[in-house]
Computed example of a mutant assay.
Amino acid sequence: MNTFLQSPAPKFAPALTVVGSINLDITATASRLPSPGETVGGGVLRQQPGGKGANQAVAAARLAGSSRMVGAVGQDDAGLSLISAMAGAGVDVRDIARVDAATGTALVLVDGDGENQIVVCPGANASVGLEGVTFADHEAVLCQLEVDQDVVLEAARQAKGFFVLNAAPAAPLLPELLDRCDLVIVNETEYELIPALRNAPLVAVTYGGEGSAIFVDGERVAEAPAVRVTDIANTIGAGDAFCAALVLALGSGLEYSHALAAANAVGADAVRDASSQPALKPLNHYIEATKPAGQTV
């Protein structure tokens, strides 16, 4: 495993590059989700930036001050607006390609409790590539599975530093890809759907209201409780904010339980925000807020 996690805690979190999806989220919020064949009225429609990759890059930029995004959008107005939104959040967008395809779109239904149903139309995300992209020794690289897994594998091969895979949506993983992962992040459902993760060197699993845990070679070695939230606005993007926060917290030298607790706190702030790319405080705020009694950070 990469020595990234064993290095002394730096004053600043490491550089983080995200390789992944960029979507326009078209969201309809209603009191409840419809059953098959049913129409539910009274919804509220909104459009906002999304995509797991873009969400993670924006969260990282808001937590750490900067991040880099590698992805693709269309030549359409949606693509330009998504790039502008990421740049405005502090993301380096120079490695986002504009291609001859529609910008990726997610059609999202959200109920009054923040639960959701999502259909994703990948569009330009199917054209993501790494031509001309390089990774520095100090960079952590974070990928997901909303782009072609061969692209993710190529990112894993090229990454020189700490490589993280958010294995979502769940899919069988190429053996070479799993072998290269320094960390895999999944929710409890994805953990069950990908049996190969049982023997992976380092896996973080989220359990919703039950918190999160880290497994080393299949053994549960650390955990942190969830932060209780009563004013849930939107659960979309919370898992992405958790991913970015956990990578940055581990890169800051935190031990596993504290890193999980800080990431849980970030995720809790994310669900209070109606946006898929929520406003977040600097990472140090969450680190201090979750610091074990008597511990200095």
Rank of each mutant, 00 (worst) to 15 (best):
N2Y: 08
N2P: 10
Q6Y: 01
S7F: 04
S7M: 06
P8N: 01
A9C: 06
P10T: 03
A15Q: 15
T17L: 02
T17N: 05
V18S: 06
L24E: 00
L24A: 00
D25C: 09
T27F: 13
A30S: 15
L33V: 02
S35F: 11
T39P: 03
L45W: 10
P49I: 01
P49T: 02
G50E: 07
G51Q: 05
G53D: 04
Q56V: 11
A57Q: 04
A57H: 06
A60P: 06
R62Q: 10
A64R: 09
A64F: 04
A64M: 02
S66M: 02
R68M: 04
M69S: 00
A72L: 08
G74F: 09
S81R: 14
S81A: 13
I83Y: 11
M86K: 11
A89T: 10
V91C: 06
R94L: 05
R94T: 07
I96T: 05
I96W: 07
V99S: 00
V99G: 08
G104V: 04
A106Y: 13
L109H: 08
Q117C: 09
Q117G: 08
G123V: 05
A124W: 13
A124I: 12
A126K: 15
S127N: 12
G129D: 14
L130C: 05
V133Y: 06
V133Q: 07
E146T: 06
V147G: 02
D150N: 14
D150M: 10
D150A: 15
V151C: 08
L153W: 09
A155S: 13
A155W: 12
K160N: 06
N166M: 15
N166E: 13
P172W: 06
P172M: 01
L173W: 07
P175C: 01
E176R: 09
L177P: 12
L177C: 08
L178E: 10
L178C: 14
L178F: 14
D179Y: 10
R180I: 02
R180P: 13
I194C: 02
A200K: 05
A200L: 11
L202D: 07
L202H: 08
A204N: 10
G208T: 06
G209P: 07
G209N: 03
E210K: 13
E210T: 02
V216K: 11
V216P: 08
D217Q: 08
E219V: 14
P225N: 02
T230G: 15
I232S: 04
G237S: 03
G239N: 04
D240N: 13
F242K: 06
C243T: 11
A245E: 05
V247S: 01
L250Q: 08
S257V: 00
H258N: 00
L260E: 02
V266K: 10
A268T: 05
D269A: 12
V271K: 07
R272W: 01
A274L: 11
A274H: 09
S275T: 05
S276T: 14
A279G: 06
L280E: 03
L283G: 03
L283V: 03
H285T: 06
Y286E: 11
A289V: 00
T290G: 00
